[in-house]
C-alpha cells in the first residue's frame, strides 16, 4: 500500500516536525522580505535618483546562483537557519521592492492630477491613491518572493538549516528514493498551494483596486 509507505517515511523522518520548522523559517524570511521590500520601495520612490542603482544592485545579487550565495554566506553567518533566512531575504527583496516602486510611480497621471486639483497633499496622494492602486502589483511581487523563499528554505537543508531540506539531503546522500519522492512531492505541493493562495489574493486585489 502506497499510503502505508508514505506514512512510514513520514513518521520515520519526523516530517510533521520538519514541516513546521520549514514553514517557520519560510514565514520569518517572507515577512522580513515583504516589510523590508515595501519600505525600500517607498524610500526609493521618495528618492528616485537612487532607484535605478539600487534596483540594479538587487538585480545583480539575484543573478548569483542560490547555491553559491548560501556557501558564500557560511564565513559570514555560519551555517543553519540564519544564513538560510538571509539568503531568502536577499533573493526576495528584489521582486517586492521593484514591484512596490513600479506600482507607486506608474499611477495614471490623470488620477494624480485629479487628486492634486481637489486639494490632496503629496502625502495624502501617496496614502490614498498611490499605495492602494499599487496593491495588486505589490501582491504580484510577494507572489514571486513566495516561490523564491520556498526554494531557498528547502536548499537550506544542505547547510544544516533543518526543515524539509534536511530529509531530502539525507535521502540524496543515503540513496533513499522513498524519502526523496515523498519529501520532494510534499515540498512541491506546499509551494503550489502557497503560490495559488497568493495568486488568488493578487487577483482579488486587482479586481478591487486595479485600473479599469
Amino acid at each position: 500500500m502506497i499510503f502505508d509507505d508514505v506514512t512510514a517515511v513520514w513518521n520515520q523522518f519526523n516530517l510533521t516536525e520538519r514541516t513546521i520548522e520549514h514553514l517557520w523559517m519560510f514565514s520569518i524570511a517572507l515577512t522580513i522580505s515583504v516589510i523590508l521590500g515595501i519600505i525600500l520601495g517607498i524610500i526609493l520612490y521618495q528618492h528616485k535618483k537612487y532607484a535605478e542603482p539600487a534596483l540594479n544592485g538587487l538585480n545583480a545579487l539575484e543573478t548569483f546562483p542560490d547555491m553559491a550565495l548560501l556557501v558564500l554566506l557560511i564565513p559570514v553567518a555560519g551555517i543553519g537557519e540564519v544564513p538560510t533566512i538571509i539568503a531568502c531575504i536577499i533573493y526576495s527583496l528584489l521582486p517586492v521592492t521593484r514591484n512596490t516602486y513600479t506600482g507607486l510611480v506608474s499611477v495614471r497621471p490623470e488620477i494624480l492630477e485629479a487628486g492634486t486639483a481637489i486639494g490632496l497633499t503629496e502625502a495624502d496622494i501617496v496614502r490614498n491613491i498611490r499605495i492602494p492602486v499599487s496593491l495588486p502589483m505589490i501582491a504580484g511581487g510577494i507572489r514571486i518572493a513566495i516561490v523564491f523563499t520556498m526554494g531557498i528554505v528547502t536548499l537550506g537543508g544542505i547547510i544544516g538549516a533543518g526543515g524539509l531540506g534536511a530529509p531530502l539531503q539525507t535521502g540524496i546522500v543515503l540513496l533513499l528514493p522513498d524519502v526523496i519522492i515523498v519529501t520532494g512531492l510534499w515540498v512541491g505541493i506546499l509551494a503550489v498551494i502557497f503560490d495559488g493562495c497568493a495568486g488568488m489574493i493578487e487577483k482579488r486585489l486587482t479586481v478591487r483596486y486595479g485600473e479599469w
Binding site: 490623470e110 488620477i111 485629479a114 486639483a117 481637489i118 492602494p132 478591487r208 486595479g210 485600473e211
Partner: peptide, 13 residues
C-alpha cells in the same frame, strides 16, 4: 470645486 472632462474619479474607491 474642479470638474474636468476626464472626470478623474478614483477607480479604486
Amino acid at each position: 470645486g474642479y470638474v474636468i472632462q476626464q472626470i478623474g474619479l478614483f477607480s479604486h474607491m
